[in-house]
Design a protein around this nucleic acid. Structure first.
Lengths: 257, 257
DNA sequence: AACGCAGTTGTACTCTGAGAAACAAGATCG
DNA sequence: CGATCTTGTTTCTCAGAGTACAACTGCGTT
């Protein structure tokens, strides 16, 4: 490897790739499959898997001898979420937001170029939006995603938008940066973002940024609901509630704006 | 290392240790801390951390330069839970169990010598038991834990009980194997386990095992609630409901008992 | 300015982890 | 029913990845 000063441990990187593969695989995966996917020898794949099994990150099926992801990941994940102060602070507000609006509320942060849901409170209504913690949300067409990136520098925004191809999910999805950039501008000005059926038909969302000390956007909070309940007329009222909630959480996190 | 055939990749094992350390750490951890904890050089610890950061499993704090767990773990965890067929099958029953009993219901599996909650449905009541998915439960004093180990062979039970020191949580906790073993025997006979304030004062639980094809215990399902509502007189009725639910899920998983 | 302590980088040696190839055990097929 | 794939597993050996050591940087304290 000429040049390319590599301060990374290759076998660890490979092992983590295997872990991701196991987690994302539909059913079980075999040694050969892993080997092919990583372009390594079978024996290498075998040892990596073996090591993962040793720590509980993978388990081997007794019969088929194939491998599945272990629950160690789930365990660690829980710890990570528990340790997140943001989550602890936001929890009651998330609940209150759900109560006052009647719609499902969500909390997300920006990580690895994606908006990742870290907490939620589901609506009691029969018809409601279902989002799962840990799932990534599109940055360019979800309210919470737009709220998260709106305050970034133009360069950073460019970078994010170019990373994923701004996929079209519905007829209303904005897929061109020249359309989205001014839109983000207006979000910045009004202090909240709206997703008007841009990600899923029949679903509207409103979200606002949560700031930490110094004013930097740390997370975003929002509500989502079916368009029949979340009407366009109702948006301003919802936005006010969401913005207010976001401001309170920001204050608790040390932002004195 | 004489003998000790080691088919494990040491640097991967170390990397996973670091990952666990990050997830379990209260706040952030430093390179030196990691190095000491693993008994490796600082430079080694640095490279491992660096690799974790590269894949999003860790993030480095801009200011303090110390490390925190990344959200990649949370993401993978979600995938793992989604892929668990048990969870998909049990979900509606978990919900129904909560509805009919009015108490919080839980689903757990045995992994790495611990009972790990994989799903739950919280009670609507103001006063209720709070358990989090991914959290481990004590095997010797929770209903769900006892239901999971009751059917194991005596040797396996011994192994499990000796692993952790059978900690005392409340005055009612059984801390001696000679007391617990016959207790497990009776659980096996009656088909359900009860936790009568053995883990948390004021909380009673009832749980029953879920079986897969072949009759082996795959998981356990149970309800928990405050003793004021979950009275001793109510236990038989609750147990019948829980056992019935467990049987239905077992059937869906291919157990024809 | 000197110190201490953190994270980071350069380097040389060594033991680890990689691949090749053989093995065991089931499936699949003619 | 034996031949032949195709799995996962094991053994062997050597290059080089990964390690420890030590030097460096940058920040906060004394």
């Amino acid at each position: 490897m000429p040049g390319k000063t590599n301060y990374e441990v290759r076998s660890l990187a490979r092992g983590l790739d295997v872990l991701a593969m196991l987690a994302e695989a539909e059913g079980t995966v075999g040694v050969t499959e892993v080997a092919e996917s990583l372009s390594v020898d079978k024996s290498t794949a075998f040892r990596l898997l073996n090591t993962l099994v040793g720590q509980g990150f993978a388990v081997q099926d007794e019969d088929s001898r194939r491998y599945r992801a272990g629950l160690r990941i789930v365990q660690l994940s829980r710890r990570v979420l528990d340790r997140t102060e943001l989550r602890a602070v936001a929890r009651p507000w998330l609940k209150q937001l759900q109560r006052t609006t009647g719609e499902s509320s969500h909390l997300a942060v920006l990580a690895q170029g994606q908006a990742i849901y870290v907490d939620k409170e589901d609506s009691d209504a029969g018809l409601n939006v279902n989002t799962e913690i840990g799932r990534p949300a599109a940055l360019h067409c979800s309210a919470i995603g737009k709220a998260l990136i709106a305050e970034l520098s133009p360069e950073e925004i460019e970078a994010f938008l170019s990373r994923e191809a701004m996929a079209r999910y519905t007829p209303r999805t904005m897929t061109a940066p020249r359309e989205l950039v001014p839109h983000l501008e207006s979000i910045r000005e009004q202090g909240y973002a709206v997703d008007d059926e841009e990600f899923e038909p029949g679903v509207r969302c409103v979200a606002a940024p949560i700031r930490g000390p110094g004013g930097r956007v740390k997370a975003a909070i929002g509500v989502s609901g079916p368009s029949v309940r979340v009407t366009l007329e109702r948006i301003p009222e919802l936005a006010a509630t969401v913005v207010d909630t976001a401001a309170r959480i920001s204050q608790l996190l040390g932002y004195s704006g």
